[in-house]
């Protein structure tokens, strides 16, 4: 792996970094909106991996899979944000640490 000749492995490294950053954001941030955006980051990293390996092995099916991932991300964002709005209307907060109604009180 050289630095000047760009191959599929370079894209996989970028995808790994993007996924790590997204997972860190999902773990460390308390705001539910930032959490959803971190999930979008991780889905994008998965797409970059699909297309990188599609380029490495000459497989066009990766492009179709990436399209499906995008459609599922759109559905996830729509439902997730609707749930977030419902939570905000009843609890007046989107901080994840304060949404503990299902936590065991004992």
């Amino acid at each position: 792996m050289t630095l000047t000749q760009i191959g599929p492995s370079h894209f996989l490294v970028v995808a790994a970094l993007l996924f790590g950053i997204g997972a860190l954001g999902a773990l460390l941030r308390r705001n539910a909106l930032t959490l959803l955006m971190s999930v979008e980051l991780m889905l994008n990293a998965a797409n970059v991996v699909f297309l990188g390996y599609g380029k490495q092995y000459g497989a066009a099916g990766a492009h179709a899979i990436a399209f499906f991932v995008m459609a599922i991300a759109a559905a996830e964002a729509a439902v997730g944000l609707a749930i977030l709005l419902g939570v905000f209307r009843t609890r007046q907060t989107v901080e994840m640490d304060e949404l503990d109604a299902l936590r065991d009180e004992t």
């Binding site: 492995s9 380029k55 066009a60």
Partner: peptide, 14 residues
């Protein structure tokens, strides 16, 4: 992951 994928295949046109 970076260590595992850094193999350096050339890639084919798709």
């Amino acid at each position: 992951l970076i260590g595992a994928v850094a193999t350096g295949a050339a890639g084919r046109p798709v």
